[in-house]
Design a binder for these strands. Structure first.
Lengths: 129, 129
DNA sequence: AAATAATACCTAAGAATTTTATGCATAAGA
DNA sequence: TCTTATGCATAAAATTCTTAGGTATTATTT
C-alpha cells in the first residue's frame, strides 16, 4: 500500500516547466513524421525529449497528446511498431512505413505552405497600399 | 414557400473552391487581430476576402469559424463593434480596442515563436549529427 | 535507506477550435 | 429568372489538444 500512496502523492512534473510556446493544433503529427524521417526509428519518450532539445525547451510535447497520436498513425498504416526491452523496461520503437514516407512528404509541404501563408499575412508589405 | 425551397435547394459554394491549405487550429484569432491592426476597421466578410486575396486563394477562412471568433474576441474586450448600413445591407465593423492592440502584440510574437520552432524542427540541420 | 527524479508506457474527461451544414436576406450578373 | 456574390448568423459534429490521472523500473539525492 505504500507504493499506491506514493504514486498519488508524487507531484507530477508534467508541465511545471518553463515558458513553452503553445502547440498549434494539427502540427503534432507532422512533427512526429518529420523526426522519424530523419532518424529511422524512435520511441515515444525519445520524441518528447528530442523536441524539447531541438527547441531549447520552448516546445513541449505532452505525453497525453503524443501516445494517442502515435497509435493513430500506426492504425492509419503510416507507422510500424517494434517492441524492445532495455534494462527491464519496455520501449516501443516506431518507424515510417512506405506509405508513411509518402505521407510525410505531403504533410511537410502542407505545413510549409501554411507557414508561407502565415508569413504573408503577418508581414505587412501589403499595408502600404 | 417558393423562397424556402430555393434556400434549401441552393447549392452552397462554401468550400467547393480551390486547393486551400488547412488552417492550423489556434491561428485564426491571431490572423483576425493582425488584419485589424493594419487596417483600422473591417467587417467579417471583408476579412474572409482579404485572407483569400493575400494568400492567392490558398487559405480560406470559413464563416462558421470566423463569426464565432469575432464574437468571442468582442466578448473578451479585444474588439469593438460598430454597425453600418450599406446598400440596404447591414455590416458589422470591428476594430481593436486598446487592450486588443496590446494583446495583438502578444499573439503575434507567440505565433512567430511557434513558426521559428517549427522551422527548427523541419530544417534538417541536426540530422547530420 | 528513503525519498525524489528520470525514464517509459498508458487512458479518459474536458476544453478549445475548427469544419460542415444549415438559415435568412438583398443586390448584381448571366 | 436563375445563379452568384454579399453579408450576417447558429448548431452539431469532428479534431486535436491539455489536464489529470495510473502503473512500473532505474538512477540520483538527501
Amino acid at each position: 500500500m505504500h507504493k499506491k500512496i506514493m504514486y498519488i502523492l508524487a507531484l507530477r512534473n508534467q508541465s511545471i516547466a518553463m515558458g513553452n510556446s503553445k502547440l498549434y493544433k494539427g502540427s503534432l503529427n507532422t512533427i512526429i513524421l518529420k523526426l522519424l524521417e530523419g532518424t529511422d526509428k524512435m520511441y515515444g519518450y525519445e520524441i518528447t525529449q528530442k523536441v524539447k532539445e531541438l527547441t531549447k525547451g520552448e516546445l513541449t510535447i505532452t505525453e497525453g497528446a503524443l501516445y494517442p497520436a502515435l497509435h493513430k498513425l500506426e492504425a492509419e498504416g503510416l507507422l510500424d511498431v517494434e517492441m524492445a526491452k532495455v534494462d527491464n523496461r519496455v520501449r516501443k520503437y516506431y518507424k515510417l512505413t512506405e506509405s508513411g514516407e509518402k505521407e510525410t512528404v505531403n504533410r511537410l509541404s502542407e505545413l510549409e505552405e501554411y507557414i508561407r501563408n502565415m508569413e504573408t499575412l503577418l508581414n505587412p508589405k501589403w499595408s502600404i497600399e
